[in-house]
Design a protein around this nucleic acid. Structure first.
Lengths: 299, 299
DNA sequence: CAATGCTATCAGCTTTTCTGATGTAATCCA
DNA sequence: TGGATTACATCAGAAAAGCTGATAGCATTG
């Protein structure tokens, strides 16, 4: 490599001495490098005559290829250097569907820019499964609905999102939906074991909402599809709806009184959170808050 | 450079040990090289886990650029190697216009192929000037019409070409031109000092050719232009006409009896002919003979 | 003809690179 | 579960490569 560099300098300067000065080397070194090339390949590169060195045809050709090679290796190292900031390593994060729908993608993009050499693998699942995997050590961190304290895990607030009523697009009055005495409604809910399902049922009961029928459905995609095709409705976290993916297929109405879903992070109590997991968690929270703020400009 | 090579091997093999085997190095060396890169640029390239090495995103990007760099440097050296055969150096050759018109170009092309690292500079001039420059050491070799021996130069036969009658295209009988009693003709000749001019005049006189008028002209291009536009004619070496450059602008007729122009090489008596000059001389002679043979297929 | 400016060469030093041995961690297999 | 295996990290010493400064040779210049 230095061979090429010094040869190029000599070729351009038409002088070993000047080449040496330019490259911070000695004339002797340049001379040896050139001779090295010439001997190794059995090709004369410079004609030493009249106190000048004149490139041979071989040198002309070699020169242009040297430039390419030097340029290529230079860009290789430059690209490498671009990875020298930010964190490096990997982390596994578990997220509930609510976060994946809208908040994850922008968070990942931003995180990738800030930490190009960090690798985040995201798993989507329901809260119970996620917590289990955190305990097992499969996941560094999970974001789930607020849950009671538990041995073996550390729980911290993540963010809160209002629950909203999601129905098929109906061009009805878009204002807040009064819950008190509402109904009868046909409600899609996750399975009973689900933390959110229990909370929502309890709060609806407290407001005397009349529930005509319920379907239990653990797939968010299927839930939304069902709603878009029928008069079934669901109460879902607003974060889940904060995407343009659905076009205007749904009516999304705040509840009155509001129901807040508190999300928390769950990490293993034994091990300290890796810097990458922590950094990603922050970026993800920012992403969530930005989405919510977008929908409630007043703050 | 070895850095890149070993990194690439490690990346492709997903193993330092295998990379070392492949590159004829030791595992230790590969490990050190990778670490070197990682430390120099502050970027982790492989994640060492579970007995495997997994490339990081930085490694992915760096890898593709490494390939480019390695490829580029490889082709540079390969191209260089292509110059390793044949002779190297330079020579200066002087030629009379007769040889430049048709024989030089193919000779140069062939010579360049055989000796890519040799440089031949060709000077065109009339014989007297060429011989002078050979003596002065400006030229290694000159090809001129046969001339008497001279102190300081070594003379060798080069090849012989018939002289031909060149007239404007006239669709006349294309056979040999009987000289005896021919005329009157309007003849273009080089200046009197020219060796060929004297020979031609003498031979025409011997055949009782009647010369109506003469013009002295030392430029071959001008001579041909004049002939193509008028009823002036010239007696020129057939080699000069052995090109397609002129299209069918001229009638070229052999002479009867033939006049042969013997060409010789002239070199300095003091110094031995350089291998390059000698090689080029041979190629040029072959080129001349091929051209003449083309025009006289019977041999 | 001395002075200058250039490259070639050499011996010795410095730095880099390589190797072989050893250590450590994970995995595999019985 | 524990010994064998495999793979990477690390280290010290050996080998190689690269560099330097001095010197010599050669051509040009004034």
């Amino acid at each position: 490599m230095r061979n090429l560099q010094l040869f190029v300098a000599a070729y351009e300067e038409r002088s070993f001495t000047l080449a040496a000065v330019r490259e911070g080397a000695t004339q002797s070194g340049v001379s040896q490098h050139v001779r090295n090339l010439e001997e190794r390949y059995g090709v004369q590169l410079f004609r030493r005559e009249k106190g000048k060195v004149l490139p041979t045809p071989a040198a002309d050709v070699f020169y242009s290829h040297c430039l390419q090679a030097l340029r290529a290796s230079d860009t290789a190292f430059q690209r490498l250097k671009q990875f020298s900031f930010g964190l490096a390593g990997e982390t596994s994060i578990g997220l509930m569907p609510t976060l994946n729908a809208a908040a994850l993608a922008p968070a990942l993009m931003l995180f990738r820019e800030r930490h190009p050499n960090a690798h985040v693998s995201v798993t989507e699942s329901y809260s119970a499964a996620l917590v289990e995997r955190v305990i097992a050590g499969d996941l560094d961190l999970a974001v789930v609905p607020a849950m009671p304290e538990m041995l073996g895990v550390r729980i911290r607030n993540f963010c809160a999102t209002p629950e909203v009523m999601v129905t098929r697009r109906d061009s009805a009055a878009p204002g807040p939906l009064r819950l008190a005495g509402l109904g009868p409604i046909k409600l899609v809910l996750p399975e009973l074991a689900n933390v959110r399902a229990q909370t929502v049922r309890a709060l609806l009961a407290a407001q005397n909402v009349e529930i005509a029928e319920t379907i239990e459905m653990n797939s968010m995609l299927a839930t939304l599809d069902l709603i878009s095709r029928s008069d079934w409705c669901a109460i879902l976290p607003e974060l889940l709806m904060a995407t343009k993916t659905y076009g205007d297929a749904f009516d999304v109405r705040p509840l009155d009184p509001p129901i807040m879903l508190q999300l928390v992070t769950v990490a293993s109590a034994a091990s300290s959170l890796s810097p990458i997991a922590s950094a990603f968690c922050n970026v993800l929270r920012d992403s969530c808050e930005a989405l919510l703020l977008e929908r409630h400009p007043q703050g």
